[in-house]
């Protein structure tokens, strides 16, 4: 019996667990790229990641200063022009993508699991566990994100790692709330009761039954928030509390170009556009992911 790979990948009767998983992944992926805006978002995010991974190999140093070439407009030699110290802006934007991707990735990897765990534990156990965890969440939630991040950076010191910690500390509460709300809606459902009746341990119920159902909304929210994370990281950089000169961080570059924005617009505008495109990409991807996850639950 001969089947092509495409048939193997779309069959409705897979022969093994691995194949079933691939088929499902393939179908979800198809649903995602069928949505044109989501496809654009996915491409932007992929381009950002590729740029961060291999981009620096193709451009010059982001910190080499050529003072004779200060504030040159975009040209064949310097596609995006040069900044006030004669550094190539293209090179700085490309290197800056590494910092952006690192911040987004680290913040997501901290915030997602922490928020999810706190939320499902609070929602599942209820009672005083819920009360304690949710009041802590409320405290964090009641302070404006950027202001709290500023306070943390001021206390911890400046730098990218501290910016990551500050952003993570300030952005988990909405995830805890989200996961808790989802948990409350499924905690008393029959399949959770059934798992308990079959002898499933609390951990198994939490991570096998409740977490996967909360995961979809958390991932969607996470993707949406990635754009916010980029903006806050850039904001911290802009205020001089995130990345420090001469690091090629986009927010920092906008801040430095502010003085020249009327006469040499490209210095501030190019990194600004980079921030805009990156956050737009994550937003569109988040939209698409939400549609895919919704389609499955309906």
């Amino acid at each position: 019996m001969s089947t092509t790979f495409a048939q193997w990948l779309t069959t409705d009767r897979p022969a093994s667990r691995a194949q079933a998983r691939l088929v499902r992944l393939n179908l979800s992926f198809r649903a995602l790229v069928a949505n044109r805006l989501a496809l654009v978002g996915l491409l932007v995010v992929l381009a950002l990641v590729v740029m961060a991974l291999i981009g620096p190999l193709f451009v010059g140093s982001p910190t080499d200063q050529v003072l004779a070439d200060r504030l040159l407009p975009p040209s064949a030699a310097h596609w995006f022009g040069t900044d006030e110290l004669g550094r190539d802006i293209l090179s700085r934007v490309v290197h800056g993508s590494q910092i952006t991707v690192r911040i987004v990735l680290m913040v997501s990897l901290i915030v997602g699991p922490v928020g999810l765990t706190i939320g499902i534990v609070a929602g599942y156990f209820g009672g005083w566990v819920d009360a304690v965890l949710m009041r802590i969440t409320d405290i964090f939630l009641s302070l404006p994100r950027l202001v709290l991040a500023l306070a943390f950076v001021a206390a911890l010191g400046t730098g990218i790692n501290n910016a990551i910690i500050a952003i993570a500390i300030t952005s988990w509460p909405p995830y805890a709330r989200l996961a808790r709300a989802e948990t409350l809606s499924i905690r008393n459902s029959d399949f959770v009761r059934m798992a308990e009746l079959q002898g499933a341990s609390t951990l198994r119920v939490l991570f096998n039954h409740i977490a996967p159902l909360c995961l979809a909304s958390v991932v969607v929210r996470l993707t949406f928030d990635m754009s916010g994370t980029i903006l806050i990281a850039a904001g911290l950089g802009f205020l001089g509390l995130g990345a420090q000169p001469p690091q090629p961080e986009w927010g920092l570059m906008v801040a430095a170009g502010r003085q020249y924005v009327l006469d040499q617009w490209w210095v501030a505008t190019i990194p600004g556009i980079a921030i805009f495109i990156a956050s737009l990409g994550f937003n569109l991807l988040g939209d698409g992911l939400r549609d895919v996850f919704d389609a499955r639950s309906s």
């Binding site: 079933a20 029959d190 996967p212």
Partner: peptide
């Protein structure tokens, strides 16, 4: 026990494989 509403007693994001495999794993 088999519950009255069998659809509600099956986790919507688990495959049949996972549903039957779970008590075996427990």
């Amino acid at each position: 026990m088999v519950m009255q509403d069998c659809y509600a007693s099956l986790n919507p994001v688990h495959t049949v494989d996972q549903i039957i495999g779970e008590p075996l794993a427990i």
